[in-house]
Structure formats: C-alpha cells, structure tokens
Amino acid sequence: MKIFHNILLTLLTLGVGVIVVTTLIDGWTYYQLPQAERVLQEEAHKMFGAAGFAGHGLGILAGIFFLGLFLYVFRKHLKFMRRWGKLNIWLRYHIFMGISAPILATVHSAFKFQGVISIGYYSMMAVALSGFIGRYLYGHIPRRKSGEELSLRQVHLDRAETIRRLEFEFGLKGPDIQKLVAFSTPRSIERWGILNLFRILWDDLSRWFQARRLARYFQHKYGLPPSEVNYLTRAIAKQRMLVQRIAFLDIVHKVFHWWHVIHKPFAYTVLVILVLHVAVTVSFGSTWIFKND
C-alpha cells in the first residue's frame, strides 16, 4: 500500500503542477495587466479571471483541497475512522492538500487580493506556513511507522537496541560506548526553556556532521573499512536523535499545544470566509460549468 500511496501522491503533485504551470504560461500576459485593463481583454478575462473558466476551476479545486484538510482531523479524533488506514498516510495527503490549496487559490485570484476574501487568502497562507512548523514539530515526537506516538519506554528500548547493535557490529569497547552516550546526551535543558527550540534546530542541522566526525574516530581506532563509515554515521546520528527527542519531548509537546492554539483559528477563519465566498458567488449566478438552464 505504501507504494500505491507514493505513486498516487506523485501523480497528484504532477497533476497540480501541470495545471498551475500551464495556466501561468497561457495567462502570463493577462496576469501582468493592471486590474482596470483586464476586463478590456474580454477573451482572456473569461478564461483567467477569478470568475473565468480556468480561474474559477482552480478556485473550486482549491476549495475542495482546503475542505479535504479536515479529513485528517476527523481521522485523528473520530473513533469510527481510527481503523481507516495509517495516520502517517493521512498526514501525507493532508500536507499535499495544505500546500496545493494556497497555490491554486493564488492563481484563482489572478494575483489580486481585495476585500473580505483577502482575509481568507492571507489566513490560508498563515495556515500553510504554520503547517510547515507543525510538521517539523510533529517529526520530533517519536512515532511508530503507523504514525502513532511511541511511549517513552519504547523509545528507551530503541535507543538501547541501537547501542547494543553498534557495540556488537563494530566491537566498540566500554570507554567508546561512554563516548557515544556522552555525544548524544543534551546539556542543561531546564535552564534554556523555550530557547531549546533553537537548540533542536541546530542539532538537526549539525547532527550528521558531528556523527560523521565520531564515526571517523571509530574508523581510525578500530580499523573499520571505509564502506562502513556511512552506515556507522547513520547509526550514531539515529542514536543521538532518539536521545535528543526524549530530552526535548516535554518542550515539543508544549510548543505543539500552542501551535494548535494558533493554527486552528486561522483554519476556521478560512473555512467561514470560504463558505461565504461560495454562497455569494453562487447567488450571483457564477456556477462555472454547472449552469442552470
């Protein structure tokens, strides 16, 4: 099933990309015109304007994708949906729609944001940008392959297994095991408070290079072949990552909570304005290809 979802998401991404790029290329001249001059380009306006064939179609697709974001929320919180596939798969579609919706909405608007709808648009952009932050924080909460959160006991077991594997496969001795443990142990977490978020970011950026340096040290000391260095680097980096995520788990949970507090109001603002926008659009008879005879 993983391969199926990989293929489907790839096709969906390519599809959205082709639609957006094609529309931008065909309508580039129109999009460069000032607002007052666009209506004078009758054919182009009927195609690329917000109420035009292409523009309106992109708006409908953006709305569908935005509403689709709530499917992930339902999957997380509704009991009858908890057996409907793995949570991490739902998250991947959630991210795809969260990125695609504002891109499609931007082209739908023909790059003109006015009135109340501009509030909805910028709220959608805020949802998308905060979504990237949320995904980053989500990745720092240890989870099973299914996407369910791991217990601290399971994380500690995984860490111990990694250390035993390194000791067995590479013959690491006691002092070097201690060196490995010291390498991955965070220092003075409590006194840093919320600033630990910057330490998490720095650790993510520097972890591989530091693990590589330690792997090189073990290579020279134990005469390991060069082919083993990459594997050892990944194993050391994973061990450090597990320990860091244990250490920073409470902080990440707190920030993740406040992230939800900020993220949700923007999402609900977009939802309300989207419903109003659709209602007003339909009331004026703009129904795209669904014309009433």
Rank of each mutant, 00 (worst) to 15 (best):
V272R: 04
T162N: 14
V20G: 01
A44Y: 04
L33H: 00
I19H: 13
H257I: 06
I3G: 06
A44L: 09
D158N: 10
I25Q: 14
I95F: 13
I289N: 13
D203F: 11
I262A: 12
G49D: 04
F66L: 07
L87M: 13
A54Q: 08
G285N: 07
V282G: 03
E190K: 15
L195V: 06
W259I: 07
T287L: 15
H263R: 02
Q114Y: 15
Y122S: 02
A237E: 06
R245C: 09
S184A: 12
Y231D: 13
W202A: 15
P34R: 00
V278T: 02
Y138I: 05
A211N: 03
E169I: 13
W288G: 01
A267D: 02
L242H: 01
K145S: 15
D293S: 11
V127M: 07
V73D: 15
E37V: 04
H140P: 05
F290I: 09
W192R: 07
L8F: 09
H263L: 11
G59Q: 02
V261F: 12
R75I: 14
G98K: 00
K145C: 12
P142K: 00
D176C: 08
I251E: 08
V278P: 06
I117A: 11
S184M: 09
I163H: 05
F132T: 02
S283Y: 08
A110N: 06
H56I: 12
V16A: 05
A235R: 01
S227Q: 07
T233K: 02
G55P: 01
F256M: 12
W28P: 04
V39H: 11
H45R: 02
M124V: 01
P265A: 04
A101L: 06
Y136S: 02
F96Q: 01
K79G: 10
G131P: 00
K86I: 10
